[in-house]
Simulated scan of single mutants.
Amino acid sequence: MLNNRTEKGPDRRPAILVCSYDPHDPAGLAAGDADGQPSDSGSARTLTVGADDPGALADLISHKLAKAECQAVLLVGRTRRSDGFRVQMRAENRGLTGPAKWSDTAPALARTTAPVSEMVQALNEAGLAAAATSDSEEDAGSHLLYRILTALPDDADAPAVALLRVPLALEPSEARRGVAVAADAIARHLPLMPRERLG
């Protein structure tokens, strides 16, 4: 089947960067195609970033957001505290290990900019148990979420940034379906790409 979107012109759907940050997770949780190529389904173009050093990942993602290469970020990791999906609503100013602060001058908390309630609703409607939480878990995900959020500009048009936690015991196919559902829920709240940004 021909791709009508290609025939009519550039793809103006918003781009979401999906980052599965845990190098030890065998499930391949990130949505989209391999090698960071965009997927061609749903309400957004999905770009993927694989696991790396958390500091390098934070810098890479913040750079892509600053350059408007994507309009949203969905961090994906695991939860050990629930049998359902958890959308983490905030992150604390902590280093990767221990209780020490990551920055002495940054705020104590950073709140996510993504449509959390819509993500939770979409997951539940898809038959995937989900809830929002303010509780951080001690892993790279909370650290990444905090660093990316505190690097965002202070304006109403800040990109959507979320952290989705997947239950450890969930089958890989269902885990990936949950990631796709959450990404699509974010995409529905994003504007189309301006024409001047399209190559």
Rank of each mutant, 00 (worst) to 15 (best):
R5W: 05
K8I: 03
K8W: 08
R12Q: 10
R12P: 02
P14F: 05
I16R: 01
Y21Q: 02
H24I: 07
H24A: 15
L29R: 14
G32D: 08
D35V: 09
G36V: 09
S39A: 15
D40W: 09
T46K: 02
V49P: 08
V49F: 07
G50E: 11
A51H: 08
A51W: 03
G55Y: 06
D59A: 14
L60D: 13
I61T: 09
I61N: 02
S62T: 15
K64Q: 15
K64I: 09
A66Q: 14
K67T: 14
K67Q: 14
Q71Y: 01
L75T: 12
V76T: 14
S82R: 05
F85L: 05
R86S: 02
R90F: 13
S103A: 07
S103R: 11
D104M: 08
D104T: 05
D104I: 03
T105P: 01
A106F: 06
A108R: 12
A110T: 04
T112N: 00
A114H: 10
S117D: 12
E118N: 07
M119I: 15
A122N: 01
A122M: 02
A126K: 07
A129D: 06
A132I: 05
A132P: 15
T133V: 08
D135F: 02
S136T: 10
E137Y: 02
D139C: 11
A140P: 00
L149T: 12
T150L: 10
P153D: 04
D154W: 09
D155R: 02
D157N: 01
A162N: 11
L163S: 01
L163F: 09
P167E: 07
L168I: 14
L168N: 13
L170A: 15
E171V: 14
P172T: 00
E174C: 15
R176V: 13
G178K: 06
V179R: 09
A180T: 10
V181G: 05
I186S: 06
A187H: 02
R188S: 04
L190F: 07
L192Y: 04
M193Q: 14
P194F: 00
P194C: 01
P194W: 00
E196C: 04
G199I: 06
